[in-house]
């Protein structure tokens, strides 16, 4: 008999069962995998879909990437962020739309984590900061899948969290036999995202399991915890998880630097809140 865990894994592997992704995504996936495809060809493809271009540019210009100037073209977004990041943003845009409209607290938590990751990577002078921010932005994407595809189980998880001192992750494991981080990793594989995005998503609660991209995973782990500590947004429970010792050692931050990082994040979160309010009012305008 199929276990719940296997059932969910099969569901996530079946792209057709997920919210409809734009047809352009299939073409983009093929292009991004081809070495011959130039940035211009990929940019032209995305630009041919105005709604998709707008979504990509909206995220690129959101406070969490923190570019000093406004990124006004998809070509510039590709140059600044790289194909992998833009591909991940395009692939996740449909699901992210649902998050914006239906799970505002989680959307804010995710944006906040993206901001935190951006600030931490700059402090540590880690390369590929934008990719790490994107992994942080998408780290809880598994929760969105649970919310929209497993409605009855999501309600049971919520009741467990509300009823006692149980974290959402513990409740997910009890109800589903798998947590959102692992589901997010499965989704990343279904979408053919690069491993450097998948591993931080799948291991953000247990960074010691992250072998190839341990630095990136440690940043996403800490970003998630700092945003929960800040109380910004709502990721399904109000418990701050423990920072894993291995991740803390990997980042090698002093208390002084951590204090500066927290101050910088908290100041930036004011802008993120404004951005989120703008998005929400634009959704209300549509109704």
């Amino acid at each position: 008999m199929q276990t719940k865990r296997e059932e969910i894994n099969r569901m996530v592997q079946d792209v057709k069962s997920l919210p409809a992704l734009p047809g352009i995504v299939v073409k983009l996936r093929a292009l991004a995998e081809s070495d011959a495809a130039s940035l211009q060809i990929i940019a032209r493809l995305i630009s041919s879909d105005q709604i998709l271009s707008a979504k990509v540019l909206k995220l690129v210009n959101s406070p969490f990437y923190g570019f000093p100037g406004r990124v006004s073209t998809v070509s510039n977004a590709l140059i600044l962020l790289g194909v992998n990041v833009v591909k991940a943003l395009v692939l996740s845009s449909s699901i992210f739309d649902l998050m914006e409209e239906n799970v505002v607290g989680l959307w804010e938590h995710s944006l906040g984590a993206g901001v935190a990751a951006n600030i931490i990577t700059k402090r540590l002078a880690l390369p590929d900061g934008e990719e790490i921010s994107t992994a942080a932005l998408l780290h809880d994407i598994g929760k969105v899948i649970i919310k929209i595809k497993l409605k009855e189980e999501a309600e049971r998880i919520r009741l467990k969290v509300d009823g006692g001192e149980v974290s959402i992750r513990e409740a997910e494991k009890e109800v589903l036999d798998v947590d959102h981080a692992e589901i997010g990793g499965w989704l990343g594989k279904t979408w053919c995202l690069p491993e450097k995005l998948i591993e931080p998503i799948a291991c953000h609660h247990d960074p010691v399991r992250s072998v190839t991209y341990a630095d990136r995973t440690a940043v996403v782990h800490l970003s998630d915890i700092l945003i929960k500590a800040s109380g910004f947004g709502y990721s399904g429970d109000d418990l701050v998880p423990r920072i894993q010792e291995a991740a803390w050692k990997k980042l090698n931050l002093s208390d002084h630097v951590l204090r500066e990082i927290v101050d910088e994040i908290e100041d930036k979160l004011i802008e993120v809140k404004n951005f989120s309010l703008e998005i929400q009012s634009s959704h209300e305008g549509k109704v």
């Binding site: 001192e165 204090r259 927290v262």
Partner: peptide, 28 residues
């Protein structure tokens, strides 16, 4: 906000690193 902060940290209030982190938020 300080009360809410204490509440969020309630399950990790014995961990030395988490105590230091909470102090950073509390000072702010």
């Amino acid at each position: 906000e300080i009360k809410a902060l204490d509440h969020r940290f309630r399950q990790v209030c014995e961990d030395p690193l988490m105590i230091r982190l909470k102090e950073i938020y509390k000072d702010r």
